[in-house]
Structure formats: structure tokens, C-alpha cells
Write a protein that binds this DNA or RNA. Sequence first.
DNA 1: GAATATTTTCATTACTTATTGAAACTTCAT
DNA 2: ATGAAGTTTCAATAAGTAATGAAAATATTC
Lengths: 166, 166
Amino acid sequence: MQLPEARRKFIEAWGAFGSAWGISRTMAQVHALLLLATEPLSTDDVMEQLNISRGNANMNLRALIDWGLVSKVLKPGDRKDHFEAEKDVWRIATQITRERKKRELEPMVKLLSELERTEGASNDAKAFRKVTGDLKDLTSRIDAVLERTTRSDVQWFLKAASTLLR
Amino acid sequence: MQLPEARRKFIEAWGAFGSAWGISRTMAQVHALLLLATEPLSTDDVMEQLNISRGNANMNLRALIDWGLVSKVLKPGDRKDHFEAEKDVWRIATQITRERKKRELEPMVKLLSELERTEGASNDAKAFRKVTGDLKDLTSRIDAVLERTTRSDVQWFLKAASTLLR
DNA sequence: GAATATTTTCATTACTTATTGAAACTTCAT
DNA sequence: ATGAAGTTTCAATAAGTAATGAAAATATTC
């Protein structure tokens, strides 16, 4: 396969992948574009290469910065902002994991902890507490592990798990 | 908090949680409803309790069966189908993980393997192969671990990880 | 095998979410 | 201070996704 086609395919696939996981298609595509770029791109570059409007490009670039996946870079002699993606896939993975943990897992653990304290002695109430309690244990354990997870931990885990589960 | 309110909150939250992770809000709500039910529910029960149409209820129940999270149960003396959710949260987690792996991770690994073979000696082509190659390594390692993951593995992992990363 | 009950399908409609584009705002050089 | 270049915002609109409900298909009973 030739580079331009491969590039297009990757951007498209990364967009679809993202949208299956609750990340907007365009945000994922902008991310893919920056991942493949060998040097920082301007807003206009992004607009042009993905055929999106200025507002859209700007919004998604800022969202990516907010997620800690992209950073602004000043190019000497150019007034335009330029944007550069983190290229280390381990850092990308932990960064995404951390953000989602913060945005979705933590609130869920909090809610489940409250719900676990639901009153009532009926079978229904007991069953309710069992389910929410079990879910809370699971989510909070996942949460706790992710809390401590850094690049080297992930590597350690994957290595250990691959070996042990062989 | 009293049971009916807690129940409502949980169903609502589970729906929002699901939709943030690429699972339709209603499918997650139907799942939540069945998780809390102490005995199997009919399509009409689901329609009534969630205020959704028959078509919608039917679609989402079948999707949940497809995901392996819910099963049909025949109630003696009743012609209606009844539905029951898997209640073991570990099994729920591994089941969801497995399905997503199959539906999204595997196709991505496959694509990345192809893209890694992109031709060209330019810097751009080299950078492209580096990024896609790194991503492929990451995703295929995750994939391999999930492949072998069963309930006891998950328990082992979370226990080991919580301890070691303390 | 006709009547009745139940489930499934699917075209239409409603809802949600993303995108545009133009205006407002900011920054910087002179 | 002014204007040129760049960035951000946001109301309007488009695109995408999910839900409805009635009709078709299927299953069950007598």
C-alpha cells in the first residue's frame, strides 16, 4: 500500500474506532492526523486536510489539548499556533484512560456508594444493595488500579499477564 | 434513600454511563432494569417500566441477548418470553470486554498490521510505520491479554495489581 | 386450521449531537 | 491607537442515531 492511501485509511479507521468508544469521530480524526504528522500543524492545515470548518477544527484541537493528548507549539517566525500530538502510544493510552476514569468512572463509583446505602428490608431492597454493592466493588477496584497505573506499570502488567496466562 | 428513587437513579446513571462508552442509552437502561429485577421480566414489563415502545424494547432485549448479557427464560404457564440478566458482575465485565474486543479491537489490530506494511523510504513513510507499528503492538498485546482473561484472571489481576502498585 | 396471542420488522418521525460560518474577540506590529 | 492576522464563540443548521407504531410474521391454543 502507498503512503497517501494508508494515511487516509488510518485517519478514517481511527475516527470510527473513537466514535465506537464515545469519543467524537472528528476529534479522533484530528488526533490521527497529528499523530501521523512529522511536524506540528496549524489550524489551517487541519481544516484543509480533513475538510472541516475553522470552528470545528478549533473546538476539537482544544478538546485534544484538554485531554492532554496534544499541545500547542510556537513556531518561530509564525504567528499561527501549531499543534503537536504526543507520539508515545503508552502515554496516549494512559492519558485517555486517566481522563475517562476521571470523567466517568469516579462519578459512577460515587453514585454506587450512595445507592449501596439504600434503605429497606424487603427482598427487593436486599437484591438492589447486592447488585449496586458488587458493581461498586468492581468499579472502585478498577478505579484504584488505574489510579496507580503509569507507563511502566502497564508494561509490567501486560508482560506479566501475557506470561502467566499463557 | 428509598428503594424506588434509588432504582430510578441507578437506571438513569447506567444509561448515561453506557452512552458515554458507545452503548446505546436505552440498551443500558434495559440492562439496568433487568439487573435489579428479582425475577425475569416480560417485554411488557420492560415497556411499562421504562416507558418505551414495543419495537424499541424488543430491539434492545435482542441486542442484550446478542451481547450475552441477558437470556430468555420460559415461565411455565405463560406464553410470553421472559428475560433475565446475568447478575455476576465479573461475568458481566468479561462479557462486555470480550464483545468489544471482538467488534472493535480485532478489526483495528488487523488494519494496523496491514498499514505497518506501507511502502516508501521517505521520512514520512518511516514515521507512519513507526506510529502504526507502535499502536499495533499495544492493541495486539491488550488483545492477547483479554483473549485469555476469565473471571478468575480478572480477580487475580486486580488483586495482584492493587497490592503491587500500592 | 382458524382465531388469538406474541414477536419481529421497518419506514417514518423524533431526538441528539456535531458542524458550519460569520461575528466578536484577542494579539501583535507599527 | 489602528489595522491585520489569528482565535474563539455560538446560534443556526445539518447529519447522525434512536424510537415509534402499525403491519407482517410467527407461534400457540383449541
